[in-house]
Amino acid sequence: MSSGSPRIAMLKTVVGALILTLLPMPSWLEIIRPGFLALTVLYWSIAAPRAGGIALGWVCGLLLDAFEGPVLGEHALALAFLAYIAVREHQRIRSKPIFQQSLIVFAALVFYEVVLFAIDGWSGHPLTTPLRWVPTLTGALVWPAAAAILARSYRPSA
């Protein structure tokens, strides 16, 4: 791996997360499928806040908007917000044990979903089914595994 900047690893993991997001699955798996792209953005915002950060979240959100979402910019704003929270608190989150990290991730994902929910409602495409909150829970549950896998994609030389 390149030791200077984790940009290439970032690109790879973002593409991987996008594929996981788009992959067709049986319907029960679809409902509990966590937001892989949100988890990826969250990880990089905590692990490498200088390299990725808010710009990464915004670009990933725009990518997501290309595939889903009623208005352009919805996921961009929500993911930039998620990245902002993570970048701001990255040192505090890093020092926590993995269980507490999952709790923080859960809270961050709830914020993310609230932003999406608000924009959905504001733009006249409300989606009020309680099922939309399931991925926040599963996202927090898979966080330890996701973080471990993402950590393998890039090893700083330090």
Partner: peptide, 10 residues
């Protein structure tokens, strides 16, 4: 958590 070790001090 081995992952979070990049540029911590900067």
């Amino acid at each position: 958590m081995a992952g979070f070790a990049t540029g911590a001090g900067r």
